[in-house]
Design a protein around this nucleic acid. Structure first.
Lengths: 170, 170
DNA sequence: TGCCTGGCTATGGTGATCACTAGTCAGGAG
DNA sequence: CTCCTGACTAGTGATCACCATAGCCAGGCA
């Protein structure tokens, strides 16, 4: 471990020698390829705020209809949203876009991006929207590192080790 | 609240009418503008694995030297990395790239992106690198939503409300 | 002094994203 | 049947990210 104040994650003995492995199969880049465009991210954000209908997506996302249509299509294809038919009386059937389980599972990622931005990209360290624990204590909600035992984990107490199916570099 | 099984975050009374506000000043997009390129993200990831030197960044990130140089420069300009001079005996002074406090604070975001990718973008729901609680229980580490009281929070128990300095739509 | 090296910048090319504009398409009303 | 509408697609142009190649620059060695 480094004696530098700005510690980073520990590497387990099998990963201690960085020259013997690489992170090229890390899924982070793949996640970003899936959701990383401005359009996709804004559509997902709005989905979490309860937006379902195309017109409202267009209005709130602030990108062109063509882009919103294309990104919604991408998100459906990626399995993050699903189309669900609905019908107002006297009108034709249309589709709403609803978060899937995989889409829901992105909430910690979106919250952590927003929380970082709120802290570091605003003059007073706060954002326009605050998230709170509804129906419980009402305290501010944030994304934190926790272990399976429920402990809060600081960066310097994280250890990276090979996943179950990881193989050494060919 | 919706009676749909796929709930999304609650909106506080002041935000219940989505037509009266927008999320356009949300910092999520700004965060992505800061770190969202493939090069930036891969450099940050490697920083967390302890990489500091240019040559090792180039080797492990897998992008061209020109891109790695440009992205490291961007990350320094954004305040996420800082350059620190070092010198091997008999050689000239060079710079290492070290995470700043703001850079460190990105760990939950990176972990949550990786964890989503590990679960949803791999055949068996696991990634090549696992993170564990070092020097404690050794349990798997993940990014979770928690409130200020330490409670684990599920998506359907999140409420969005105006931040301290938010104003209604002009 | 000249030479070597690591780190970086510049240029032209390709592909992706988005803006803008125009058009297509299909369902439903009249 | 025609017409309207919401949702979407297509084409063009601008910008950005990255690749490949070439070159620049400054520090240090011989």
């Amino acid at each position: 471990m480094s004696d530098e104040p700005t510690d980073v994650v520990h590497l387990s003995p099998r990963l201690a020698d960085r020259s013997t492995w690489s992170a090229e199969s890390c899924t982070m880049a793949a996640t970003m390829a899936t959701i990383g465009t401005r359009g996709s991210l804004m559509c997902l954000r709005e989905s979490f705020y309860g937006v379902r209908r195309f017109e409202e997506f267009v209005s709130r996302v602030g990108l062109s209809e063509a882009v919103v249509a294309a990104r919604l299509k991408d998100l459906v294809a990626a399995g993050l949203l699903e189309r669900r038919p609905y019908r107002e009386p006297g009108q034709r059937v249309r589709d709403e876009y609803v978060l899937t389980e995989a889409g829901h599972d992105l909430l910690p990622a979106l919250v952590s991006l927003m929380q970082w931005g709120d802290r570091w990209l605003t003059p007073d360290g706060r954002g326009p929207i605050a998230l709170r624990h509804h129906g419980s204590c009402g305290e501010t909600v944030r994304a934190e590192l926790r272990c399976g035992a429920g402990h809060q984990v600081v960066a310097s107490d994280v250890e990276a080790s090979p996943g179950v199916r990881a193989r050494p570099r060919a």
